[in-house]
């Protein structure tokens, strides 16, 4: 099996990026136009696109907190326990 035809070609990678952007726009559009939530459990369930913002902010926060804050306290050299 050769996957290089799928992932090795820069032209195709660019197409995937377009597909990605279209998908984002599509789902947010569907959220705004069609989604009528079954249950409103939390106040934000009424705001279309909330989950999109949560995904962007949440993932950024996780990376930043973990890699820039927590790592200051817990990251050690690989031979830390073997000294």
């Amino acid at each position: 099996m050769n996957l290089e035809n799928w992932f090795g070609d820069p032209k195709k990678i660019r197409i995937y990026k377009y597909i990605f952007v279209i998908a984002v726009i599509f789902f947010i559009a569907v959220d705004i136009i069609f989604v009528d939530p079954h249950h409103v459990y939390f106040p934000w369930d009424n705001y279309p696109g909330f989950n999109a913002i949560f995904g962007l902010v949440g993932s950024s926060v996780v990376i930043i907190i973990s890699k820039l804050v927590i790592s200051k306290f817990v990251s050690k050299k690989e031979n830390y326990y073997d000294r």
């Binding site: 984002v24 989950n51 913002i53 995904g55 962007l56 949440g58 993932s59 990376i63 890699k67």
Partner: peptide, 22 residues
């Protein structure tokens, strides 16, 4: 359900964007 699928898709796609950014 529609809301469920759309919300999951939004969450995951924008998480990918966040990863890309950082």
């Amino acid at each position: 359900t529609l809301d469920h699928v759309v919300w999951s898709a939004e969450l995951l796609l924008l998480t990918a964007l966040g990863f890309w950014a950082f």
